[in-house]
Design a protein around this nucleic acid. Sequence first.
DNA 1: CATGAATGAGTATTCATTCAT
DNA 2: TATGAATGAATACTCATTCAT
Lengths: 215, 215, 215, 215
Amino acid sequence: MRKLDPVKHEKKRQEILGAAMRCFLCSGLKGASTADICAEAKISPGHLYHYFDSKDAIVASLIEGRLEKVAEQLKAGIQSESSIVETLAPELEAQPGGAAAMALIFDMMAESKRNPEMGKIVDSHNRSIRESLVEMLRYGQSRGEVEGKLDLEVTATTIMALMHAAKVVAMQNPKEADKALPVLRQLLGHLLTTPAESAKAGPPRTKKTVARVRA
Amino acid sequence: MRKLDPVKHEKKRQEILGAAMRCFLCSGLKGASTADICAEAKISPGHLYHYFDSKDAIVASLIEGRLEKVAEQLKAGIQSESSIVETLAPELEAQPGGAAAMALIFDMMAESKRNPEMGKIVDSHNRSIRESLVEMLRYGQSRGEVEGKLDLEVTATTIMALMHAAKVVAMQNPKEADKALPVLRQLLGHLLTTPAESAKAGPPRTKKTVARVRA
Amino acid sequence: MRKLDPVKHEKKRQEILGAAMRCFLCSGLKGASTADICAEAKISPGHLYHYFDSKDAIVASLIEGRLEKVAEQLKAGIQSESSIVETLAPELEAQPGGAAAMALIFDMMAESKRNPEMGKIVDSHNRSIRESLVEMLRYGQSRGEVEGKLDLEVTATTIMALMHAAKVVAMQNPKEADKALPVLRQLLGHLLTTPAESAKAGPPRTKKTVARVRA
Amino acid sequence: MRKLDPVKHEKKRQEILGAAMRCFLCSGLKGASTADICAEAKISPGHLYHYFDSKDAIVASLIEGRLEKVAEQLKAGIQSESSIVETLAPELEAQPGGAAAMALIFDMMAESKRNPEMGKIVDSHNRSIRESLVEMLRYGQSRGEVEGKLDLEVTATTIMALMHAAKVVAMQNPKEADKALPVLRQLLGHLLTTPAESAKAGPPRTKKTVARVRA
DNA sequence: CATGAATGAGTATTCATTCAT
DNA sequence: TATGAATGAATACTCATTCAT
């Protein structure tokens, strides 16, 4: 009778996390209440706190889980013998789960900028993902797949941004996505094989400059 | 909601929108309360409803205003004699307001995916922005600035992806934005001047394919 | 239409404080909920926070009000030409309001030792009451009513303790109170007119010492 | 609630009571939760109810224990050959545990005024303590230590007031307790050796009477 | 136009207690 | 004995919104 089933405990935890995810997908991070989550998980409101310290802890758990999965997949890709473009291809596609999943990701990104606790989690995982990408790129350089003079940190940052942007655009323009995503992959290929330009974006055709955006 | 002096009324409306924006930047869309906004705008809580039907109406107004500004600037850029890269440059630069402004944009995107009312606004503006981009590209083709064989719809979609990528960089890696944003501009230049590849992303080094990501 | 009736606001505040006091008398500081108070004051639960920042703020207001009244009465007594024993006599009686009021005072004393915020309020008022007593005693010395060699600070502390103790005993032994309270007044008279003994409590009759009490 | 080994059962009970006391000292009667107590006692929340019917039962047990100890010590003092002043001295000294212990005592007194169950316990013990004091005083009269004409019931009540005064000093002015408590002991000495005055508290200096305090 | 009093459903969280194992 | 999962009502407090003035 020592620790009657820590495995059962973990299972319930995961059940609750699942219920929470479903709620968050429907109503957003702030829109879903702990009461909603409890109802979805079919537990009493108090019982939630047997498994999590707070609603934030649930969100943090969810974010962490998500980022861990991404990081794992990336590392797996690195260890495979695939080319970088090939390895990253799945990330340059629509977010499975569609618009709701994407909205939740936006929520999480926004939240992580406001809640320092979550900011830490997200930052640390982003860093770890970036490091994986850098490693992947360095290996790519050794194989000749990646241009040798590239700043790998900056390139990794750019790749992460493209990965995210691809998902957004696939969501906003599902009709064009089939054609636009390959273009993004092509841009990725260009990015990896072209030395950075020396801070000039090509000779401007005209002299007239545009009023700066004030948004 | 009926106004005696339409000019003063509109002016106050804008003041309130400004106050709301400041609150939202600090605390997020759900985090800022109408009470916060009223305090910031120095009006009484009841008075807010002389200018807006609801908090959501304020948010919608703000989103609409933001998107309108972007659309206007694009159209202005088209009519000017600037190059496309130059015209789009402001959208590919560090945004004023920094990470907080980006977080708010993500908040708004999340909200627009959940609230159909706002979804409509965002969708219609996105469409209009895409159309402007297409027009701009077409004009660019006529000037020889843009590769003639490009599918302009797809290219516009891709440009929007790049614009989004810039926002992600600004939010997640504000420190590296100085270096990564020029890379995005360079990719834009490449995009405009290179004919689309025929669905191959360069010769894959190996045959092994990666398991599809299920994030 | 400037500040429509700050007097009405204060009146409502006092009404709420009254309702809160009634609730606290019935159920204690922790036992009475904000919902109880709102029900008693016949306002909605949210409206309470129009008038008070928190439940603690209500308690603090109540404590402060109570202590202010005591302090005022003391000062009034000092300015009158009554003798000290006479002036303090009303304080050496049963607590009006009976056992419930006494219980609430206990609650407040306990609370003030745990909640630093309230500790400050209580301490500062106690200090002010002690200062009034010291002043009163000093004046009594000048009139010859109070022994000149007394340490007035210590005497004031002792008087405050007696004031409190009198109320407690009157509550616990209402039957004996009529006779016991005059005895306490007599002890007070003795206290004021007898020089402090030099740390000996008179010659002990026997040598045997008692085992020390353990709490 | 049935026990297999009554000795072990009682031992555990005492352990839990100790843990509860520690919690109550820290956080107060209502502030400490059963969960806190279980954690401190290192038992599971359910197990607590093998030893006590409820949280209130724990509090009642604690109060009873405390009062019993005081009563016992008094009785022990009576049987010893010590003087009364000496016997009562421990009750007129700084209590171990300091202000927190005093706060808890006040908590308990407040509780006993509201919860009839506990009120009974406290009342019955107070009665028994008064009886012990009366007996002690009677014996003191027979030895000549106590003035013969004193009304012993009233004197006992007054002594209890002084004991309470000591607690107030210990709580509100722990720094001055060193000086004020001997004064209380001195008052006790005076009380025991001085015949009651005939309802006059010394010659009032003026005729003016003070308005009755309505605090 | 403008105020701020008023609402009441809703928020996350706590807690004494019960119960199956 | 002992565990800890489970409950559900209760807690202090928030907030978008309405309304009398």
